[in-house]
C-alpha cells in the first residue's frame, strides 16, 4: 500500500514535465511510423525499432540505410557515431543515477536526448521518490515514442493523402536541434567544423559514402584545434 502510493505519487509528479515530449514524440513518432510504412516496411518494423533502438535521429537516418544494400559495418558505425553523444550524457548522469538499483537499467536504456534533458535539469519535488520520478520520466517518454510510431505505422496503411515531403520532418528536427545548440554555444568552432567537413566530404566522397570520412575529419579537427577552441571558452 505504502509502496503503491510512492509509485503513483512519482507518476503524478513526473507527468507534467513530460508533456512537451508527449507532443513532440507523438508527432515525430507518427511521422516515423508513416515514413517507414510508405517506404515499404511492414508495420512491425518501425514499432520494433522504436522499442529497441529508441533514438529519433538515428532511426530517421537509418531509413535510407535500411532501404539500401546490406551494409552491417556502416550501419553499426553510423549507430555509434550518431549516438556517440550519449557517452557524454552517461558521464554526466553517473552521479545522478547512482543508488537507483534495478531501475538503473531502464534509466540508462531509455536515456534519449529529451529524457536526459529532463532528468538532468529537474529535481523530484519534495516528498517524491527520486528514483521513481526519474524512472517515470524515462518510461513515459519511451512510451510516447513507441505509441506514436505504432499509430503512424498502423495508420500509414490507410493514409490516402499525398505524403510526399513528409520526411522533411527529419530535416526540420535536425535544423531545430542545430539552432538550439547554436544559441546555447557562445563560440561556434565545432558547428563550423562539422559543416565544413560534411560539405567537403560530400563533394569529395559523394552522397552514399561521405558520412564516415566526415566523422573522422570532425574528430581529427576537434583534436587538432583543441587548444584554441578551449582557449576561446567553448561551451562555457
Amino acid at each position: 500500500m505504502e509502496k503503491q502510493k510512492k509509485v503513483s505519487r512519482a507518476l503524478k509528479a513526473a507527468f507534467p514535465y513530460t508533456i512537451p515530449v508527449f507532443t513532440g514524440f507523438t508527432f515525430l513518432g507518427i511521422s516515423y511510423g508513416v515514413l517507414m510504412t510508405v517506404s515499404g516496411f511492414p508495420a512491425w518494423c518501425p514499432i520494433l525499432i522504436s522499442l529497441v533502438v529508441y533514438g529519433g535521429s538515428l532511426q530517421f537516418a537509418a531509413v535510407a540505410m535500411l532501404l539500401s544494400a546490406f551494409a552491417p559495418v556502416e550501419v553499426f558505425a553510423v549507430a555509434l557515431m550518431v549516438q556517440a553523444r550519449h557517452l557524454f550524457y552517461g558521464i554526466t548522469m553517473i552521479e545522478r543515477y547512482k543508488n537507483t538499483g534495478w531501475k538503473k537499467f531502464f534509466l540508462v536504456f531509455g536515456m534519449s536526448d529529451e529524457t536526459f534533458s529532463i532528468n538532468c535539469s529537474t529535481d523530484a519535488p519534495a516528498g517524491v521518490d527520486k528514483g521513481w520520478f526519474m524512472l517515470w520520466v524515462t518510461l513515459l517518454d519511451w512510451g510516447y515514442w513507441v505509441g506514436g510510431t505504432a499509430v503512424g505505422a498502423l495508420l500509414g496503411n490507410f493514409i490516402t493523402f499525398n505524403t510526399e515531403g513528409l520526411d522533411f520532418a527529419m530535416t526540420a528536427m535536425f535544423v531545430v536541434i542545430f539552432i538550439e545548440q547554436w544559441l546555447k554555444d557562445k563560440k561556434h568552432w565545432s558547428a563550423i567544423i562539422g559543416a565544413v567537413a560534411s560539405v567537403a566530404c560530400l563533394v569529395i566522397f559523394g552522397a552514399e559514402s561521405f558520412l564516415i570520412p566526415t566523422m573522422l575529419c570532425i574528430l581529427a579537427l576537434l583534436g587538432i584545434f583543441r587548444k584554441p577552441i578551449e582557449k576561446a571558452g567553448y561551451g562555457q
Binding site: A61, A84, R85, G194, T214, M215, I218
Partner: peptide, 8 residues
C-alpha cells in the same frame, strides 16, 4: 554541435 551540422 559538429554532429548536428553533419546531420543537417
Amino acid at each position: 554541435a559538429a554532429i548536428f551540422s553533419m546531420l543537417v
